[in-house]
Design a protein around this nucleic acid. Structure first.
Lengths: 275, 275
DNA sequence: CCGCTGGTTCCGGCGAATGGAACGGTCGCC
DNA sequence: GGCGACCGTTCCATTCGCCGGAACCAGCGG
């Protein structure tokens, strides 16, 4: 009715839905709440009563909803213990794609170029998700060093070059949100002080690329550059190299890698579809 | 708890109506149907009207359901085009614990073994879901041929070695269900005649592995072996190789691959938890 | 400028969701 | 082995929120 309504395409306004419980009293909402409850139960399965308690509805209702969910394959069960079902698996894979598919696609070629051009141990593509980076793609040498990253996996953003590169070009609020809680300390070198972190962000902004030295994983340093869209970072690409090759002068100097990265990331940003 | 459970969910309750599916008239069911509809929209997003048409409900209802789904983060939107939402991302780890979790986990190691042992272009793990195979896992060479498969994706069962391997060791009713409608013709080589298909199943049963020659994808042939539990196939593993290496004698002869597969699939079946 | 397509909102009537209560199976404690 | 507590499942009358046709906007193309 009124005019100040958001019809805005670019920025997705995310409600800070930190609230727990109190599902709206609609059948659909309750069903979804049940789904959420079950998916929260990592590993272990749920019984009807537990679900009912968790969601806050009578047993019979929970039971009915579970049967509905089961009919659609969103939950499955062994005996009478319920777990998330096959449809859930399908959808989560589909979500991976529909949300980041185009990003992955446009990035694929530059990523390969980067991989061949440098002789880094690995190249990564990631986005920011909450306080973590979420890895979208990864290329490694077959015999490469084992890195803790996994496509679809997460890692505390503040401990990675990827996270720094993205945050360096993100709105204040986003940064504040990420460093709102104590910074994760994965290795002894992980940045622990907010002030220091913010300083690094500003350096990264100036240089165009961010650096991380063994803050995520012993023995590897990373360089990363942001992928931009509409003036804000939406993702980042990174190169990982063993500490040794990075420090023992010559072979791989970080600024050179940085330039390579900027080249690649700019190319990706440029060819990214607009909307 | 005499659980005779099978891992495959949405198989047998086939509603008489096959077309645009008259969902049960419950708010929850409709919401889930909407979710499914949206996830089917690979790549492109859905508008309210399209969803309404696809699910078979009036616009207003579709709209209301979409809003509910959005509130829970199960769908997201850009402007007013809807797509599957972030919640599935957040919970994508949970999907690892779905009913397919243990299957994927126990299969992981043998799958890798298979991949390294053969020099196939790809190895797949899949289950039967309706008339399709549902890919649970996939390993490919970085520079490998592009295959149409995707983890979480589907493909008509009758056009794949995976499907044949599973169906060869499935109850009559299941087979009848799958070949009840006209067989899909993806390539000119796809098996179109039921009789021929059934013959292939019996051959596959005898040999222990199934073969598919460019019936799913030009230029690749596949071999697959079933993973058994309680005397019935619950999944299958496959190797894909380019047609050239397969036909130009020597390098990769199919029976050899078959033996490799049977070894791996037997190992998986053996180490699969019972109930 | 007007008609059209597609998204969003409203509202009354009615059917579907609700949840308390009862049933039956299973486990484990005594 | 018997008993009791717990849990999943079913039933049913009541009521409450969903349903969906219709009206309202907004953007587009002719």
């Amino acid at each position: 009715m009124s005019v100040d309504m958001v019809v805005v395409p670019p920025v997705s306004d995310r409600q800070p839905d930190a609230q727990v419980g109190e599902v709206a009293q609609s059948s659909a909402s309750k069903a979804l709440a049940v789904l959420e409850a079950i998916s929260r139960a990592r590993g272990s399965s749920f019984g009807v009563t537990e679900v009912a308690a968790d969601v806050g509805v009578p047993k019979s209702t929970a039971h009915r909803l579970l049967k509905t969910l089961e009919k659609h394959g969103f939950v499955g069960r062994s005996g009478s213990r319920y777990r998330v079902g096959g449809s859930f698996f399908e959808l989560s894979e589909a979500a991976r794609w529909s949300e980041f598919g185009e990003l992955r696609d446009t990035a694929a070629r530059p990523l390969n170029w980067l991989f061949e051009r440098s002789d880094a141990a690995a190249v990564h593509l990631a986005v920011l998700s909450g306080r973590d980076v979420l890895y979208l793609d990864k290329i490694t040498r077959p015999a490469g060093t084992r890195l803790p990253s996994r496509v679809g996996g997460r890692f505390p953003a503040t401990c990675t070059a990827l996270g720094k590169a993205i945050l360096a070009h993100s709105p204040r609020a986003t940064v504040a949100d990420v460093i709102g809680e104590p910074l994760a300390r994965i290795t002894p070198y992980s940045v622990a002080l907010r002030q220091q972190f913010v300083l690094q962000l500003s350096k990264a902004r100036d240089a165009g690329y961010a650096i991380e030295r063994e803050e995520a994983c012993h023995g590897t340093v990373c360089v990363a550059a942001p992928i931009m869209r509409d003036g804000a970072a939406v993702a980042a690409v990174s190169l990982s190299v063993p500490t040794l090759t990075a420090t023992r002068g010559g072979a791989a100097d970080l600024p050179a890698l940085g330039r390579l990265l900027v080249q690649a990331s700019t190319e990706i940003s440029r060819s990214l579809p607009l909307a």
